[in-house]
Amino acid sequence: MPLPTKDILGILADNLNQRKSVLPMSAAKTTRWAKGLDLPKGGKTILYTGHMYQLIPVIDAMAGQMSKLEDSPITKMMGLGRLGNKFINMTFFMGLLASKADQQDYDRMLRNIALLLKKANVEFGYLYGEELYSGALVYDEGIDGSFAKHAQRVCDLLKKHGVTKVITVDPHTTHTLRTAYPQFVKGFDIEVKSYLEVLAESDIEPTQQLSDALTLHDSCLYARQEGVVDQPRKLLGKAGVTMNEPELCGKNTHCCGGPLESLFPSESHRIAGNRIEQLKEAGDNITTMCPICLVGLRKAAKGSVKVNDISDTLAKVYGV
């Protein structure tokens, strides 16, 4: 029996409406990565994480539980789960299952990004505990009423802080803020750029050359919707990295399967398995630029090849 689409979407929408995130997390967990970096609060230009990297260890723990429910009669109880979740934040308990090592891993990637921007002399602040999730998943699932309200909430928050430019760290937040928000929020005029675009436009110079050959897995949203294809290649190329491109790359990249994880976990894993095989044909050192691609492809690789986030590679070659 497949997971019940209606009830799962209902829980996601209820959480966004009531708790301002599809998977609400404490501010302590969403801001932990910034500890010791002395980032100013707010500012005209801010780094906006959209909580995506921080959410991955929770999503991963939750997906493990959901996979067990797929084909189980317990799925019939999901309607009751939705009712209970209105009163008690049940996803909070899923968060407790998140691995500590994974949390440290994803926090490090965010720190890499902030340090790279500092190295490139970009002045930026951070909203700390006030920052909100972007609403990306609710937008994708077509729950437009909830999404529109949330987009307005995020826009009001940015305006309150006088933000005119947002630097994003992942393709989903980039796409939601840059392409979806202007369709839902009247007069949304905040500039949105991915950190990869900002770094590629800067004069940041590598501190070491890397002789490794990497296989880059392009994110669907970055490549096809947001025009982010050349920037990561430019940044890696400056450090002497050679690219072993898979047959499906750039604008013709193949999805990692991640978008199906919450509703159809086994199908999501099938697509990730197909993609990792394509990437393995090109090379054994795979680099992603989206935390959702990273977690899915790492699991599909089962340790047979290295799968790393591009922020780790960039941090190494640009000396941060």
Partner: peptide, 30 residues
């Protein structure tokens, strides 16, 4: 089950915005 990955629209000779159409259907069903 659609991934909204956009591989279809990238290769569509008629330039149909397929992921947006799927989002519309989800909205209608929701």
């Amino acid at each position: 089950s659609c991934l909204l990955c956009g591989m279809c629209s990238e290769n569509c000779p008629a330039e149909v915005n397929i992921p947006e159409n799927v989002r519309f259907l989800r909205k209608y069903i929701n």
